[in-house]
C-alpha cells in the first residue's frame, strides 16, 4: 500500500532554521548569508565591510570552510567577534552548525550577523540558515552565464553582487549580460557592483544593508522593557 508522507527532505534543517529565524526576530538580529564560488571575494567583501564599521558596532561573523581557520584570522583583525566553522569536508553550512557556533560565540542582538558560507554555488542554496537574505557573489573573472548554470542559488538570493570590478578593464566580462542572465532566473533580484580593493560601489552596498536592517527592525516585535 502507498502511504502519503509529504514532508520536506530537509525538514529537520528547516525546523532548526525556523528556530534561528525566531531567535533573530526576538533579538532583533539581521542575519545575511553570503554564497559564491570559491575565490569570488566573500572574505574580501566582509573585510572591507567590517573595516567600514565604527568600533563597537554590534556585528558578528560566522565563516565556513572545509578546513583551516584562515578566514577567521583574516576577519578577526577588525575587532569584531568572529568564529570559524570548520565543516571537515561538508560542502555547505547547515542550521545546526550555525546554531552551535552562534551559541559558542555568545552573540546577542540587536545587531548584524554576517554568515560566510562555504565556497560553493550548489549545496549551500538548499540549506536554510534562518537568514533574512541570501546574497550571491559573482566575480568578473567568472563567466556571465553562471546564473544560468547555477539557477538554484540565483533564484533564492535577494541580492547579486558583482565583485572585483577593478579588474573589468582587463577581462572580457559583460556585467550587463551577467545581470540579464540573473534576471532570466530571478526577475526581482537586486543588483550591485563593487570592488573590495578600491572601495568602488561600497556606499551602495552599505546602503543596501542598512535598508534591510531598517526593514527588519520595523518587522521585529516591540521590545519588552
Amino acid at each position: 500500500m502507498r502511504e502519503v508522507v509529504e514532508k520536506k527532505v530537509l525538514s529537520e534543517n528547516d525546523r532548526l532554521a525556523a528556530e534561528l529565524r525566531q531567535r533573530y526576530r526576538e533579538q532583533n538580529i539581521l542575519c545575511v548569508n553570503f554564497i559564491s564560488s570559491p575565490g569570488s571575494g566573500k572574505t574580501a567583501l566582509l573585510e572591507k565591510t567590517l573595516g567600514s564599521f565604527a568600533p563597537g558596532t554590534p556585528v558578528a561573523v560566522l565563516t565556513g570552510d572545509l578546513q583551516t581557520d584562515n578566514d577567521a584570522r583574516r576577519l578577526m583583525r577588525y575587532g569584531f567577534p568572529v568564529r570559524q566553522i570548520v565543516t571537515g569536508g561538508t560542502c555547505h553550512l547547515d542550521a545546526r552548525m550555525v546554531e552551535r557556533h552562534l551559541n559558542e560565540l555568545g552573540f546577542r542582538g540587536p545587531g548584524l550577523l554576517l554568515v560566510e558560507n562555504v565556497g560553493n554555488l550548489v549545496c549551500p542554496s538548499s540549506y536554510d540558515l534562518g537568514e533574512a537574505a541570501k546574497i550571491v557573489l559573482l566575480s568578473v573573472t567568472e563567466g556571465e552565464d553562471k546564473p544560468l548554470k547555477y539557477p538554484g542559488i540565483f533564484h533564492r538570493a535577494s541580492l547579486m553582487i558583482l565583485t572585483k570590478t577593478d579588474l573589468l578593464p582587463h577581462v572580457e566580462f559583460d556585467p550587463k549580460l551577467a545581470l540579464e542572465n540573473a534576471r532570466k532566473i530571478h526577475p526581482e533580484i537586486d543588483y550591485l557592483a563593487l570592488s573590495s580593493k578600491t572601495g568602488e560601489g561600497f556606499d551602495q552596498w552599505l546602503a543596501w544593508l542598512a535598508a534591510l536592517q531598517q526593514k527588519t527592525r520595523q518587522e521585529a516585535p516591540a521590545t519588552i522593557s
Binding site: M1, R2, E3, V4, V5, E6, K7, K8, V9, L10, S126, G152, H155, P187
Partner: peptide
C-alpha cells in the same frame, strides 16, 4: 505578460512510502 510567480521547481520532498503490513 512578463510578470509571473514561481509555483514549482524548488521541490525537495518525500512524497510517499510504499509498504506492506
Amino acid at each position: 505578460e512578463a510578470r509571473s510567480t514561481c509555483i514549482g521547481g524548488t521541490e525537495l520532498d518525500i512524497a510517499y512510502l510504499e509498504l506492506e503490513e
